[in-house]
Write a protein that binds this DNA or RNA. Structure first.
Lengths: 135, 135
DNA sequence: ATGCCTGCAAAGCTTTTGCAGATGC
DNA sequence: GCATCTGCAAAAGCTTTGCAGGCAT
């Protein structure tokens, strides 16, 4: 139950936090902005402030419950964390976001960092793609 | 001579444009923000407006003269384009930016897009690294 | 009871836009 | 000469912060 996750993160179990976590849990592939979340919850009859959404999302990010992405410049989207790491592919025509994992790339990224005398601590990788034209 | 590059891009040769292009040419590895560029030019005695810096950088980006990156959320940095593609590694301790090219990763990125039925149109990849601890 | 949370409004930052005057060609 | 360009100031868009009241524990 996600309430326990909140407690484990040292966060009190409040209605905004539960609503936001639930929403991100339902829309696992949604990658929503703070505003998306705010409007969705309002539309669902929830009473919540936009500032609270921002605050809660930052707390969730710090607690490792969600991940923040910057696919487009100037705004962040959030995604519920569930286990494994993955990267993203964004379709430039439709805006669709596809998740993928490629161990070979991960391994090479480590190697590249090592080669420069560094330890890899994380990465951001987004592939921009277009639908293959029908042949 | 870079004035010709401006003309080729359909841009009039004006003092702000020449200054900005020269500055980015000198600091090839600088990855400067609009504000960095603005302040640097002001300090150098140039007369220029911040809005112009933003406008010119966008025009340069569109013309392919510079590339915009979003290493940190909420602000863009710009880099003069010179030939080949490369990716970046950012040191989380020092903020240092290191450029690298890895053909194997590039190839795998194409393969990953293809596997989903897409054509790869570009990508953004930043490795976050820390100095290897002395053993 | 008390310290953490919330909503609201105001402020902060980066970036964009409207406009009148200036400049390149 | 005329369209393009510039600087300034205002505005826009996303996000953060101050504050007084409210809620979880």
């Amino acid at each position: 139950m996600s309430k326990q996750e909140l407690r484990d993160a040292g966060l009190k179990v409040t209605s905004p936090r539960v609503s936001i976590l639930h929403l991100l849990e339902q829309r696992k592939n949604a990658h929503m902005t703070a505003e998306d979340i705010y409007k969705t919850l309002l539309a669902a009859g929830d009473e919540i402030g936009l500032a609270t959404v921002y605050r809660v999302l930052s707390q969730f990010e710090e607690a490792g419950l969600v991940t923040r992405h910057n696919f487009e410049e100037g705004k962040s989207v959030f995604e519920r964390n569930r286990g494994g790491h993955h990267d993203h592919m964004v379709c430039l025509d439709t805006g669709k976001v596809i998740e993928f994992v490629n161990e070979d790339i991960e391994r090479l990224q480590h190697a590249v960092a090592e080669a420069q005398g560094y330890d890899l601590d994380g990465h951001s990788m987004v592939l921009f793609v277009r639908p293959k034209p029908k042949s």
